[in-house]
Design a protein around this nucleic acid. Structure first.
Lengths: 209, 209
DNA sequence: GCACAACGTGACCCACCGGTCAGGTTAGGT
DNA sequence: ACCTAACCTGACCGGTGGGTCACGTTGTGC
C-alpha cells in the first residue's frame, strides 16, 4: 500500500514542481499579463521549459489553472461574506477584495475583459462566481440597501470597470480605486432610479418595490 | 514657385500614402489592439513594409499618431458640447461618445489604461482632453446637476471604466455599455454624498456647497 | 524632357516564442 | 542495492515580429 491514495500517487518532486510552476506563473502573469512567456515562467520556477509543458500542455492550460485559482478564491470570499451581519458592508468588502485582486494581476484583467481568451472551465468558474455574488447581492437588495435592478453579474462586471477606471493612476496613486469604488457604491445606493436598460444575464428578476 | 508651401513641400504620393497608412493602421489597431503587426498594416494599406517605417520610424510612433487623432477628436467633441444649452445632456452625450469610441478600438483601450505605453505626446493629449472635459464638468457642477466632488479627470477615467465593465458582454450585447453609463450617471447625480477620497490630478477645487 | 533627390520596395536580419523530443536522471517500491 | 517507470532537461524546430538597407522607381523643378 503506497503512502498516497490507491495506485501509487504522483511523485513527490512532481508535486513540488507543480507548486513552483503555479507560483512562478502566478507572479509572471500578474506582472506581465498574457505576454509573460513560458520560458520566463520556467526560469522563475528554476525549471526547464520542457517541464512546464509536461505539467501544462499549452500556455492556455497554464493560464486557465491560474485563473481558476483566483476565481475560486473570490467565489469563496463571496460565500464566506454571506454570513456577515451587515449585508451592505459585506458587499463593499467583497468588491474591495475583487478590485484589489484585479489591480494586482494584469493577466486576470485581460482575461476577464475578453471572453475569447477564456477556456470553457474559466467561463464556468466566472458563471459560478456570478451565482455566489448574486446571493450576496440579493441580500442587500432585499434589505433595500442597494437598488433593486442590480444583479450579481453587474457586481462582478463592475469589479473590472472600477479597476480599469483607476488603472491609469495605479503607478502614482495605488489606492485610487477606492475613490471609484465609493462612486460605484453611490450608484448602487441610488434611491429611486430610472430603471437600467437591458438586464445582463444572471438574474432577470427585479425585486418588486 | 512650387505647387506646395515654400521649400518644396512633400511629394504628392507621400501625402497620399501617409493617409493610406494611417487609415490602415487605425483599422488594424482598432481590431487587433497592440498586437496588430506592422506587416499587416502595410498589407492593408497596399504598401511595402519598408514604407511604413519610412513614415513612422517605430511602431510606437505610428501608434501615437493614431492615438493623438482619437484624443483630438474627443477633445474637439468636448469643446463643441460646451455650447450646448443643457449641460447635463451635453455631459452625457460626451460620455456616450467616449465610451462608444473605446468600445470600437482595442488599442485605444489598452493605451489609455497603461501610461507606460504612452509617449510624451500622448500623455499631453490626454491631459489636454482632461482640461477640455473639466470645462464641461464644471458647468454641470455649477448648475448642481452633478455632485461637487467630481472632476474632469474623473469623467475621462470613467470612460475607460464604463467600457471595461461592459466589455465581457460586447460580443453578445453590443449596447450593454449603455446600462453602465446610466449607472455611472446615477453616481454622478448622487445628491448629498459622502466626499470621495483622494482627489485625482486635474482639478483639486471642490465647488462650495 | 532631363536629372536628381526623394520615395517606395521587398528581401533580409536577428531575437523571441510556443511547442517537441530523445536521452539522461531520480524517486520509490521491492 | 537495484530496477524501472515516471520525470526532468535543454537543444531544437517552425513561425512570426520589429526593424534595416541597397537598389529600383517616380515625382518635380528647371
Amino acid at each position: 500500500m503506497a503512502t498516497t491514495t490507491g495506485t501509487t500517487g504522483p511523485r513527490a518532486d512532481m508535486v513540488r514542481n507543480r507548486r513552483l510552476l503555479l507560483d512562478a506563473a502566478t507572479a509572471a502573469f500578474a506582472e506581465q499579463g498574457l505576454d509573460a512567456s513560458m520560458g520566463d515562467i520556467a526560469q522563475r520556477a528554476g525549471l526547464a521549459k520542457g517541464t512546464v509543458f509536461r505539467h501544462f500542455p499549452t500556455k492556455e492550460d497554464l493560464l486557465s489553472a491560474i485563473m481558476l485559482r483566483l476565481l475560486d478564491r473570490l467565489a469563496g470570499s463571496a460565500v464566506r461574506l454571506l454570513e456577515a451581519d451587515d449585508a451592505a458592508a459585506a458587499l463593499r468588502e467583497f468588491m474591495a477584495d475583487g478590485v484589489e485582486t484585479l489591480a494586482a494581476d494584469r493577466a486576470f484583467c485581460e482575461v476577464i475583459g475578453r471572453p475569447s481568451l477564456q477556456q470553457a472551465e474559466v467561463r464556468d468558474a466566472i458563471a459560478d462566481l456570478c451565482v455566489a455574488v448574486e446571493a450576496l447581492t440579493a441580500r442587500a437588495r432585499d434589505l433595500k440597501v442597494i437598488r433593486g435592478d442590480v444583479t450579481g453579474t453587474d457586481i462582478v462586471l463592475l469589479l473590472g470597470g472600477i479597476h480599469q477606471t483607476a488603472a491609469p493612476l495605479l503607478a502614482t496613486q495605488p489606492q485610487a480605486w477606492r475613490r471609484y469604488l465609493e462612486l460605484a457604491l453611490d450608484a448602487l445606493r441610488t434611491p429611486h432610479p430610472t430603471p437600467l436598460p437591458e438586464e445582463p444575464p444572471g438574474r432577470p428578476e427585479v425585486s418588486a418595490g
